[in-house]
Computed example of a mutant assay.
Amino acid sequence: MSTQIIITLPDDIYQRAERFARLANCDVASILVDTIQLSIPRLSVGTLAILSLSLSFLINKSWC
């Protein structure tokens, strides 16, 4: 299943993706999908709980 989205990219980011797509003989959308898939790790429920607690601690911690 896929979800279609519309994103606005800065010109320089789009140009980089476009150049890379040309070199790889792919379309820009495929390059962006692959980049996102490789950039966002798959997280288990347990990992998400630990990450959530860690972030909550860091956000609420007093650094004084």
Rank of each mutant, 00 (worst) to 15 (best):
M1S: 14
M1N: 14
M1P: 14
M1L: 12
S2F: 11
S2W: 11
S2V: 13
S2T: 14
T3D: 09
T3C: 08
T3E: 11
I5N: 04
I6C: 10
I6Q: 13
T8A: 10
T8V: 09
L9Q: 02
P10S: 06
P10K: 10
D11C: 01
D11F: 05
D12T: 02
D12L: 09
I13C: 06
I13H: 10
I13E: 08
I13G: 05
Y14S: 03
Y14V: 01
Y14L: 08
Q15E: 13
R16Q: 11
R16Y: 11
A17S: 01
A17T: 03
A17G: 04
E18D: 12
E18K: 08
R19I: 06
R19A: 13
R19Q: 12
F20D: 08
F20C: 09
A21D: 03
A21F: 00
A21W: 04
R22Y: 03
R22W: 01
R22S: 11
L23P: 02
L23A: 15
L23T: 14
L23V: 10
A24W: 06
A24G: 02
A24R: 15
A24N: 10
A24F: 05
N25C: 05
C26L: 15
C26K: 15
C26M: 15
D27I: 08
V28M: 01
V28R: 00
S30Q: 11
L32P: 00
L32E: 00
L32V: 15
L32H: 03
L32C: 07
V33P: 00
V33S: 06
V33A: 12
D34Q: 14
D34E: 14
D34S: 14
T35P: 00
T35Y: 10
T35M: 09
I36L: 13
I36G: 07
Q37M: 12
Q37I: 14
Q37V: 11
L38F: 13
L38V: 12
S39Q: 05
I40E: 00
P41V: 07
P41T: 01
P41L: 02
P41A: 03
R42N: 09
L43Y: 02
L43E: 06
S44F: 03
S44V: 05
S44T: 15
T47W: 00
T47N: 04
T47E: 07
L48S: 12
L48P: 09
I50F: 08
L51Y: 01
L51Q: 09
S52I: 08
S52P: 02
S52V: 09
L53K: 14
L53A: 14
S54N: 11
L55V: 03
S56K: 14
F57H: 11
F57I: 10
L58E: 09
I59M: 04
N60D: 06
N60C: 04
N60T: 06
N60L: 10
N60F: 05
K61W: 04
K61V: 03
K61R: 11
S62V: 00
S62G: 04
W63V: 04
W63Y: 07
W63S: 07
W63G: 05
C64K: 13
